[in-house]
């Protein structure tokens, strides 16, 4: 645990010293929020759109921006840099738990996820979005976003460890597009066309998005909230097991 903490601190220092890698994580999701709201808000006026529960269309779009921000983790690319530069071997030659080598970066990604989620939600609140589920809902929303950031970057770390190549790792992040857009991104699932609804039902990110949306638009509705956490825990457990297995067999 101590080694994970020490390596996590190093990864956080690295992030602090490369603000140019963090700023797009904040800017691009906000850009998409503004653009999506600008394009569709007049179709869904808050007064006559039931699924908005009296809030603006921006509140409905906020989860998409949070998930977009959570998918911009840099840990996998920094890991490839460590591998290519030889520092990863330096760490492997120390008596460090192999799991700590990947967990340290994931811990840092969680902290970054919390900071970015708080910043985006706070900005949303400045522009009138309310978190209907209250302070506990706010905490759960931040937690869910940060945990997904860890899961997503952990999946990219698998590609980094397997290929040891920056281009391949970068290409791996393209999986974000089907995951993000085969979801009820613009309207609730029941309003999607049938093929899109089927695709969204099989996409685990749908449940995350619906969970986040519920935390923003509804009182604490545990029936909708828990599937999001279940997705993060199940996919996260698989991701962690695969990372540890891969690093234990890293030659």
């Amino acid at each position: 645990m101590n080694q994970t903490w020490v390596l996590g601190q190093r990864a956080l220092r690295e992030a602090w010293r490369t603000p140019e890698a963090i700023l797009p994580t904040l800017f691009i999701p906000l850009f998409f929020l503004v653009v999506n709201v600008g394009q569709a808000a007049r179709i869904f006026p808050s007064a006559s759109t039931d699924f908005l529960n009296g809030q603006s269309y921006g509140a409905f779009q906020l989860p998409a921006s949070l998930l977009l921000a959570a998918s911009f983790g840099t840990a996998a690319l920094y890991l490839v840099e460590d591998i290519e530069g030889g520092y990863f071997d330096k760490l492997r030659a120390a008596p460090v738990s192999r799991a700590a080598l990947v967990l340290g970066r994931l811990f840092a990604e969680f902290v970054k996820g919390v900071v970015i989620a708080v910043a985006i939600i706070a900005l949303g609140m400045v522009f009138g979005i309310e978190i209907a589920s209250g302070p506990l809902g706010f905490v759960l929303l931040v937690l869910l976003t940060a945990l997904w950031a860890v899961v997503f970057v952990g999946l990219l770390q698998l590609i980094a460890l397997k290929t040891r190549n920056a281009a391949a790792t970068n290409s791996g992040s393209l999986i974000f597009f089907p995951l993000m857009f085969l979801t009820p991104n613009f309207v609730p699932r029941e309003l999607l066309t049938r093929p899109m609804e089927i695709a969204a039902t099989f996409n685990p990110v749908t449940y995350l998005m619906e969970s986040q949306r519920s935390l923003i638009l509804d009182d604490l509705d545990w029936g909708t909230i828990w599937p999001g956490f279940a997705v993060v825990l199940v996919v996260g457990a698989i991701m962690l097991a695969a990372n540890v297995r891969l690093i234990n067999h890293y030659d």
Binding site: L7, R10, R17, G85, Y87, K90, A93
Partner: peptide, 26 residues
């Protein structure tokens, strides 16, 4: 162990790198 192509983290200071290494050794 000091391998070919000094394996160092360019975003740390020399002192930070050594402190980190020492902490990894307990």
């Amino acid at each position: 162990v000091a391998l070919q192509e000094a394996g160092l983290d360019p975003r740390q200071t020399g002192r930070e790198l050594l402190v980190l290494q020492a902490r990894l050794f307990g």
